[in-house]
Write a protein that binds this DNA or RNA. Structure first.
Length: 520
DNA sequence: CATGTCACG
DNA sequence: ACGTACGTGACATGA
C-alpha cells in the first residue's frame, strides 16, 4: 500500500502486523477512540489522528509521514527510511500515545455514559471492524466487467442522442457545458441555482425539465449509467486484493460525528439498491462456494428510537402493536382509520416521518411533497397535535443542546454542536436540525455496534465458520456456510434485538441468498 | 483542489 | 429576514 492511500487509516499497523503473521494479543486503549468519544463535533475538532491530538492537547507538531518518506513520485517506502529517522518517528508515536492517553482517559472515566460508550461499544467494535476489513467480501469481477461493457455501449448511444437533441456535441459529464446548452443555447427555464449561483442541472431539475423537453430525459439516464459505470462496475474489480481475491473496505470508526461508521477505499456502504440497474451491481457481491450471504437489518430503527426518546404514547403504542408505522401516522394525520389509508396518504406520512428524523421545516416538507408551504405546515401541525410527546421531545432537545452545547444518545454518546448558539440564523438552525437528528442516528449507530460485538462474540464462542463482512448503518451482512444457515437465521435476530431494552420492541429482518441482492 | 453531482442509510 | 431535512464517500471536470 502506498502512503497516499493510507489516508486516515487507523488499525493500519494491526493489518501490517497481521500480514506478517503477528496477531496483537489485545488492545487496551486507543487514543483515536478516546478523542472520538470525548470530542466528536467539538469546535475546532476536525479529526482524531495522533498528529492532530498532539497538536491540540500537547501543542506538539509531529513528524509527518511525508517529512519522513517524501511525497508524490519521489516518495520512498518506510523500509527505505534511514533507521535513525524511522526510529524517531516510531518512538514519537509510542510516546505521544501514552501521554495522550494519560490526558484523555481520565476525562472518559469521570463520566459513566462516556465510559460505557468507550469501553462497551467503541473498543470492542474496533476489533470486530478489524476482522471484517481483513475478511473482505467476494466480488464477481466477470459479472461487473460484462455490465461495464454493456453500460459503455448504452452510454455511447445516449450521448449520441443528447448531442443530436442539443444540436451540437458537448461533454454530458460537465455541469458547466450542460448548463450552457440547456439554459443559454436552448433557453430552458432555470429551476434552481447551486451555492455558487450557477443554474443547477441536478436530478431534481432535470426531472422537472424532462416533463416538457426531450433532452433532459436522455441526460438523466446517461447520468445514472455513467455513475454506475464510473463508480462501481469499472472500479470495484480493480479493488480486488491479489492475495485474498476479495475486496477489503476500510471502516473509519472516528469520522462521522453521530457515531456512525464510514466506509472507504472502496465505500461499500453506498452500493446501489434503489434501481433495477443498480441492483445488478449489488448482485455481483457473492458468497464463496458452500456459503450464502445473510443480511439482517433493523426495521424502522430510527423511528423506534424516536418513540423511545420522546415517550410519545401513540407512537409507542403503534410499535408495541406491531403496526405499519407509516400507515398509522397517515391515519392520525388524515383522521381516517388505518384501513382507509391508501398509497398516497401512506407516502405522505412516510415523508413526514423521515422529515421528523431530520428536523424538517415546513419549507423542506413542502419541497419534498411538492406542496404549498401552508399545506406542509398544516401537516406538521396536525402531526404534532396527534403526537404531542414528539413535539415536546423536539423542543426539549433543542433547549438541551442550547444550554449544554451537546446532545446525547440513549447510551450516553455525546455530540457537540458548537454552532447551536451561532449568531447567524442559518448556521444556528442547521445545528438545531443536527441536534434533533443526532440522538436518533447516533443511538442507532450504538445499537448496531453492540450487535456487531454480540454477533462476533457468539461466532467465536460457538466456533462457527460464519463471518461478519459488512455493516451498512442498520444492516449486517454475513457470509455463512450452508451447514450453519439455519442456526444463523434463527439466532441472529434475537442477538441483534436483545442488545438493549428500549420502550419499543426492536425488530430485525433476515434475508438469505447467493448474492447481496438476493439476501436483501 | 474546489465544485457539482449522486450513490447509500 | 432568511435559508431550508440528517449523516457519509467517490467521481469527473476544470481552474
Amino acid at each position: 500500500m502506498t502512503a497516499a492511500k493510507i489516508k486516515k487509516k487507523h488499525k493500519y499497523d494491526q493489518h501490517v502486523f497481521a500480514n506478517h503473521g503477528i496477531a496483537l494479543a489485545g488492545v487496551a486503549h486507543d487514543t483515536l477512540l478516546e478523542s472520538y468519544v470525548l470530542e466528536a463535533g467539538k469546535d475546532g475538532v476536525r479529526g482524531h489522528d495522533l498528529g492532530q491530538l498532539a497538536l491540540r492537547h500537547l501543542s506538539l507538531k509531529t513528524i509527518s509521514y511525508e517529512e519522513l518518506c517524501g511525497k508524490g513520485a519521489s516518495q520512498i517506502g518506510f523500509n527505505q527510511v534511514a533507521l535513525e529517522h524511522a526510529a524517531a518517528y516510531a518512538a514519537e508515536d509510542a510516546d505521544l500515545c501514552l501521554r495522550l492517553h494519560a490526558k484523555l482517559y481520565p476525562q472518559i472515566a469521570a463520566d459513566a455514559g462516556l465510559k460505557r460508550v468507550y469501553e462497551d461499544i467503541e473498543l470492542p467494535a474496533r476489533e470486530v471492524l478489524f476482522r471484517m476489513e481483513r475478511e473482505g467480501v467476494l466480488v464477481d469481477a466477470d459479472k461487473l466487467a460484462a455490465q461495464s461493457h454493456e453500460l459503455g455501449l448504452r452510454l455511447i448511444e445516449l450521448e449520441r442522442q443528447a448531442h443530436e437533441l442539443a444540436g451540437q456535441p458537448f461533454n454530458v459529464n460537465s455541469p458547466k457545458q450542460l448548463g450552457e446548452i440547456l439554459f443559454t443555447k436552448l433557453g430552458l427555464p432555470v429551476k434552481k441555482k447551486t451555492p455558487s449561483g450557477t443554474p443547477s442541472t441536478d436530478e431534481e431539475v432535470l426531472s422537472e425539465l424532462a416533463l416538457d423537453y426531450p433532452l433532459p430525459k436522455a441526460l438523466l439516464e446517461a447520468r445514472q449509467l455513467a455513475k454506475l459505470k464510473g463508480t462501481y462496475t469499472d472500479k470495484l474489480p480493480r479493488m480486488i486484493n491479489a492475495r485474498s481475491g476479495r475486496v477489503h473496505t476500510s471502516f473509519a470508526q472516528a469520522v462521522a460525528v453521530t457515531g456512525r461508521l464510514a466506509s472507504s477505499d472502496p465505500n461499500l456502504q453506498n452500493i446501489p439498491v434503489r434501481t433495477a440497474e443498480g441492483r445488478r451491481i449489488r448482485a455481483a457481491f457473492v458468497a464463496k462456494p458452500g456459503c450464502r450471504l445473510v443480511s439482517a437489518d433493523y426495521s424502522q430503527v430510527e423511528l423506534r428510537i424516536m418513540a423511545h426518546l420522546s415517550e410519545d404514547e401513540r407512537l409507542l403504542d403503534a410499535f408495541a402493536h406491531g403496526e405499519d408505522v407509516h400507515r398509522a401516522t397517515a391515519a392520525e394525520i388524515f383522521g381516517v382509520t388505518p384501513l382507509e389509508v391508501g398509497p398516497d396518504k401512506r407516502r405522505v406520512a412516510k415523508v413526514i416521518n423521515f422529515g421528523l428524523i431530520y428536523g424538517m421545516s415546513a419549507f423542506g416538507l413542502a419541497r419534498q411533497l411538492d406542496l404549498e408551504r401552508g399545506a406542509a405546515q398544516a401537516y406538521i401541525d396536525r402531526y404534532f397535535a396527534r403526537y404531542p410527546g414528539v413535539a415536546r421531545y423536539m423542543e426539549e432537545t433543542r433547549e438541551a443542546a442550547r444550554t449544554k452545547g451537546y446532545v446525547e444518545t440513549v447510551f450516553g454518546r455525546r455530540l457537540w454542536l458548537p454552532e447551536i448558539r451561532a449568531s447567524q440564523a442559518g448556521r444556528r438552525q442547521g445545528a438545531e436540525r443536527a441536534a434533533i437528528n443526532a440522538p436518533m442516528q447516533g443511538t442507532a449507530a450504538d445499537l448496531i455496534k453492540l450487535a456487531m460485538v454480540a454477533v462476533e462474540n457468539w461466532i467465536v464462542r460457538e466456533g462457527l465458520q460464519a463471518r461478519l463482512l459488512l455493516q451498512v448503518h442498520d444492516e449486517l451482512i454475513l457470509e455463512v456456510p450452508d451447514a450453519e444457515l439455519s442456526r444463523v437465521r434463527a439466532e441472529l435476530p434475537p442477538l441483534m434485538t436483545q442488545v438493549a431494552q428500549l420502550r419499543v420492541p426492536l425488530v430485525v429482518e433476515v434475508g438469505v441468498g447467493a448474492n447481496w441482492d438476493e439476501a436483501h
